[in-house]
Amino acid sequence: GATAVSEWTEYKTADGKTYYYNNRTDESTWEKPQELK
C-alpha cells in the first residue's frame, strides 16, 4: 500500500511549546496527531 505523507507539520511557539498544524485542513492541535504516532 502507499504510504500517506503526513500533512502535519510540527511548530514551536515563542515560549517553546510544541504544536502541530495540518496544511490541508487548516487545523492545529496541541496533541500529537494519530498519523505521527
Results as ranks from 00 to 15, higher is better:
G1Q: 13
G1M: 14
G1V: 13
G1P: 13
G1Y: 13
G1L: 14
G1H: 13
G1K: 03
G1A: 13
G1N: 13
G1R: 00
A2L: 13
A2V: 12
A2K: 05
A2S: 13
A2T: 13
A2I: 12
A2D: 13
A2H: 14
A2W: 13
A2P: 13
A2E: 13
A2Y: 11
T3F: 09
T3H: 13
T3G: 12
T3P: 14
T3E: 12
T3C: 06
T3D: 11
T3L: 13
T3R: 00
T3I: 13
T3V: 12
T3M: 12
A4H: 14
A4Y: 09
A4M: 13
A4L: 14
A4T: 14
A4P: 14
A4D: 13
V5Q: 13
V5W: 12
V5F: 13
V5T: 14
V5Y: 12
V5R: 04
V5I: 14
V5G: 12
V5K: 10
S6K: 08
S6V: 09
S6I: 08
S6T: 12
S6M: 09
S6G: 11
S6N: 11
S6F: 08
S6H: 09
E7W: 07
E7S: 06
E7T: 06
E7V: 06
E7R: 01
E7D: 11
E7Q: 08
W8D: 00
W8M: 01
W8L: 01
W8P: 01
W8I: 02
W8A: 01
W8K: 01
T9S: 12
T9F: 10
T9A: 10
T9E: 11
T9Q: 12
T9K: 11
T9V: 15
E10W: 05
E10V: 09
E10F: 02
E10I: 09
E10A: 09
E10R: 01
E10Q: 07
E10L: 05
E10P: 05
E10N: 02
E10G: 00
E10Y: 03
Y11T: 05
Y11W: 07
Y11F: 11
Y11V: 14
Y11D: 03
Y11S: 05
K12G: 03
K12F: 09
K12I: 13
K12Q: 12
K12P: 02
K12N: 06
K12L: 11
K12A: 07
K12T: 14
K12E: 08
T13F: 04
T13E: 03
T13D: 13
T13M: 05
T13P: 00
A14T: 09
A14L: 10
A14K: 11
A14V: 10
A14F: 03
A14S: 11
A14G: 08
A14P: 12
A14M: 08
D15P: 00
D15R: 00
D15Q: 06
D15T: 06
D15I: 00
D15V: 01
G16E: 03
G16L: 00
G16F: 01
G16Y: 00
G16Q: 01
G16W: 00
G16S: 01
G16A: 00
K17G: 05
K17Y: 06
K17S: 08
K17Q: 10
K17N: 08
K17P: 01
K17H: 08
K17V: 09
T18H: 06
T18K: 06
T18I: 12
T18P: 06
T18A: 06
T18E: 06
T18R: 03
T18L: 10
T18Q: 04
T18F: 08
T18S: 10
Y19W: 12
Y19D: 03
Y19A: 04
Y19H: 05
Y19N: 03
Y19Q: 04
Y19V: 07
Y19G: 04
Y19E: 04
Y20F: 06
Y20E: 02
Y20C: 01
Y20A: 00
Y20M: 00
Y20H: 02
Y20V: 00
Y20K: 00
Y20I: 00
Y20L: 02
Y20N: 01
Y21Q: 05
Y21P: 04
Y21H: 11
Y21I: 08
Y21W: 06
Y21S: 04
Y21M: 04
Y21K: 11
Y21E: 04
Y21N: 03
Y21T: 05
Y21G: 02
N22Q: 01
N22S: 03
N22Y: 02
N22T: 00
N22M: 00
N22H: 02
N22R: 00
N22E: 02
N22V: 00
N22F: 02
N23V: 10
N23A: 11
N23D: 11
N23E: 14
N23K: 11
N23Q: 12
N23W: 14
N23I: 10
N23P: 10
N23R: 08
N23G: 07
R24V: 15
R24T: 12
R24S: 14
R24W: 15
R24Q: 14
R24Y: 15
R24K: 15
R24E: 11
R24A: 14
R24M: 14
R24C: 09
T25R: 02
T25M: 02
T25Q: 04
T25V: 02
T25E: 03
T25S: 05
T25G: 01
T25I: 03
T25D: 03
E27M: 07
E27V: 09
E27L: 06
E27H: 05
E27G: 03
E27A: 05
E27F: 04
E27W: 03
E27Y: 04
E27T: 09
S28K: 15
S28I: 15
S28E: 11
S28D: 04
S28G: 11
S28Q: 12
T29M: 07
T29W: 05
T29V: 12
T29K: 06
T29R: 10
T29E: 04
T29Y: 07
T29S: 12
W30P: 07
W30S: 09
W30T: 11
W30M: 10
W30I: 07
W30A: 08
W30V: 08
W30H: 07
E31W: 06
E31P: 02
K32A: 07
K32F: 06
K32M: 12
K32E: 10
K32I: 10
K32H: 05
K32S: 04
K32D: 05
K32W: 04
K32N: 07
K32G: 04
K32V: 09
P33I: 02
P33R: 00
P33C: 01
P33E: 03
P33W: 02
P33F: 03
P33M: 01
P33A: 02
P33N: 02
P33T: 02
P33Y: 01
Q34R: 06
Q34K: 09
Q34V: 13
Q34S: 14
Q34H: 12
Q34M: 10
Q34C: 06
Q34G: 11
Q34F: 11
Q34E: 15
Q34T: 14
Q34A: 15
Q34I: 13
E35H: 07
E35I: 05
E35W: 05
E35N: 09
E35P: 07
E35L: 06
E35S: 11
E35T: 07
E35M: 05
E35G: 08
E35R: 01
L36K: 04
L36M: 11
L36A: 04
L36C: 05
L36G: 05
L36Y: 14
L36S: 05
K37V: 15
K37G: 15
K37Q: 15
K37W: 14
K37L: 15
K37I: 15
K37R: 10
K37N: 15
K37S: 15
K37P: 11
